[in-house]
Every structure is written in structure tokens, then in C-alpha cells.
Write a protein that binds this DNA or RNA. Sequence first.
DNA 1: TGATCCATTACGGGATTCCGTAAGGCTGTT
DNA 2: AACAGCCTTACGGAATCCCGTAATGGATCA
Lengths: 221, 221
Amino acid sequence: MFKKVLIAEDMEDINKGVFAMLNELGIQEVQQVQYCDDAYMRIQKARLDKKPFDLLITDLSFKEDYRTQKYPNGPDLIERIRQDDRDMKIIVYSIEDKIQVVKKLFNSYKINGYVCKTRRGLKNLSSAITDIMKGKKYVSPEVDNALSTHSDLDINDYDIALLSHLSKGMSQEEISDYYKKNNISPASLSSIEKRLNKLRVDFNANNAIQLIAIVKDLGLI
Amino acid sequence: MFKKVLIAEDMEDINKGVFAMLNELGIQEVQQVQYCDDAYMRIQKARLDKKPFDLLITDLSFKEDYRTQKYPNGPDLIERIRQDDRDMKIIVYSIEDKIQVVKKLFNSYKINGYVCKTRRGLKNLSSAITDIMKGKKYVSPEVDNALSTHSDLDINDYDIALLSHLSKGMSQEEISDYYKKNNISPASLSSIEKRLNKLRVDFNANNAIQLIAIVKDLGLI
DNA sequence: TGATCCATTACGGGATTCCGTAAGGCTGTT
DNA sequence: AACAGCCTTACGGAATCCCGTAATGGATCA
């Protein structure tokens, strides 16, 4: 069983709920923070003290407030952690159910579990912990099938940036000019058209408008 | 002080947190439900028994599960309640911070308070209750200024439908044809262009693509 | 009835997107 | 060197969007 666990969750009530559940599971040491920066500090310190955390349970989105944060939300925190430590287990516990977001967490950041905050969220979180102890991954049923079926489209950072520019109102020609100025390749109008055409096919969109609507729903931009 | 309060909130932990807070405020009778349909039933029954609720505190989004619901989420519930009862106080307690959504809740459904789920969420909820008891409205600081400054654009159902069709990939000409078939007026391509032009100006969008991106962010569609 | 207002519709032209075809350039293989 | 494969770029035409201006039609009021 995990010995030392950190909870990063801004909402007090949820944080408490998770804490109680971990106690019931018989975990000895559970620490709680409400900010990602605090989470990183604790993890850092624990590692230096040679008493590292076994497991991090973290939310994705943290509401901003007066405390400006270096790592304002979950993905930022996780990315930073993974620079030092590929081993610590990480479970994301979030309301987010957008497939692409979850996919990226597993692929890029090698998280070990993803649990949706639902009515059964705490129970699933408990299952996740036991699964991960056995070396398995865990994905909440809410996103599991969507994750496995939805064939893997190869959307890269260039595509994301392109869609983002488009959604900000730039014309394809303006994007082309911008890319030429900033030495981003491919930059030609023709290439941009081609790439957008591919994206439209991938996402079954009739035109650029629908494409943007779809990728916004997916949480891609 | 309110005597009889109902909490509608699907997440168990949050529901508990709110319940505890209400107890501390000294409210005598607090009931809790995790589904909107249950909420409506209770409210209905309480009214028939001549012991109606003074106050409803409800979430906006309820996760779907195996129980199919007549009123799947907060707005549906609130709309239904307001058909019978314009007097019961309603506070929405939600993570949602999209201005247009909040605006619609106040304008169309005459809710009495809106509290954002944040770190200080419970404290704000408590303030909301005391404000509303005094006959005032309450709006969380997170959305308050945005709500008051952002001048009131007159976006109607026709506009929303138009934007929705656009986001689903229909061309303006297709929308025009569709409107003509279904006797929706105005239906001409020219009128549709004109309306979209107005919307682009209202929302400061360069083109239809950005327009859709913006209204999606605002939660309008 | 005539004047006015306002919403809807019509039309034209420039800008942009969409989509096919083809040419140019780079890489790796034989 | 010659070739194939792939990515990038170029170009042209059709469709669509964008944006004026102007005509139509209904409602109201004097």
C-alpha cells in the first residue's frame, strides 16, 4: 500500500472527501495542499529529505486567486514533476471529460490514473489506487471506451497552433505571412490550406467554422 | 432566517460541505438530493403539504448516469420550478463562470444568487444567504464585475440558433434554405448575412470562425 | 391616402476559402 | 546518378463569405 500521499485540490470540501477516503484505505501519511506551487514545494522537499511521496492525487484546474502561481494548474504541475521524477505515481482527479485532454495526460506526462469527478468519483478513485498499486493503469469508465475506441489521430503542436490562430480570427493568408516572418514551416498558404483540409477530414468537419467548433468541444484549444 | 432549505448537488462531498455550512448558520431543516428530478419531487411535495422550501441551492451541471432524468441539469430544474413558483429563493452554486450563462439565469429564470465554486465558495455561499434574506441579490465577485460592465447585447434565440447551425457546419446558404423550408423568418441569405455581421460587430470577431470560437467560450452555444 | 419607419430581401463585387492538379525540393535507396 | 517517396509550394477555378447599396413590403400615424 502507498505510504505517503499528497492531495492537490483547490476546493476544500473535495480535498476533505479525498482525505477521508485515503484514511479509510489505511494510508499512513496524507498531506493536503490547495495550490500547485505548494504541491511542487512539498514534493521537492520530500525528495530532498529522502522521504518522497509515493503518490500524487491532483485536480487539473485550479481557480486563480490573489496568489500568483508559477504552476497555475494541474498539467503545469505534472509537467514540472515529470522533469525530475518519472517514477512517482500520479492520479488525476478532475471533472474534465474531454478525451483529448486525458489522452495527452497519459501520452505526454505518463500519468498512472485518471478518475472523473462524478457521483461515484471517490469509489473510482479508490479502485484506481488499488489498480495502480498492482502496477496497472486506471481510467474512469466515463472516458475509458471513448479513449480506446476513438482512433488515434496524429494531431501535433503545429496543428494545435494553426487551429488556435484560426480561432483568434486570423485569415489563412495572415497565418501564412506570420509563419514566414517567424520562420515557422510550413508557411505557404497552400500548405496551410492542405493541413486544414486534413484536419477537416480527420474531424468530419464541413468547413473551418465547424472544425473550430469541434476542436473546442474536444478541448484541443 | 431561512427555515427549510434544499440542496441539489450531485457530488457527495460538496453536498456534505454545503450541508455542514447550513447547519452552522443555524438553519433548522436542510434536505439533500443528488438528482434534479428528486429535487423537483421534493419541492412539489413540500408545496402540496403546505410546508414549502424557502430556498433551493443547486448546482448547474449534473453528471449523467444510469438514471435517466426528466430534468437533467440545473437550468432545466430551475425553469420548471419557476413555472409554478416565482417566489422561492434560488441560489445557483456552480463552477461555471461564463458570463452569458449567469446572465441568462438572472434574466430568464430570476434566480436570487449566483455563487462560484472556488476556494472561498462556501464562505461566499454563506454571504449570499444572508444577502438574500435581506431581499438583495448576490453575485460572486468572480463574475460580478464582468456581469455589470459587459454591456448588455441583445442576443435572442434566433441568433443562438443561427450560431448553432453555423457551428454544425451548415453554410449560410444551407441555413437560408432550411429556414425557408421550415418557415423560419427571416430566411433570406441576405438577412442571415446581415445578422451574422451584427453578431461579428457585437463580439469583435474578424470572421465567422472567430465568432464561433468566441460564443463557444462564452457558453452561448 | 400618403408619408415614414423598419425589417426583410435582392443584387453585385471583392475577399477568402475550398479543392484539385502540378511543379519544386529534400532524403534515402539502389 | 537515377529513382521513388514525401513534404512543401504554386496556381487556377469554383464556392462561399463579406460588405456595401438599393429595392420591396408591411405597419403605424397623421
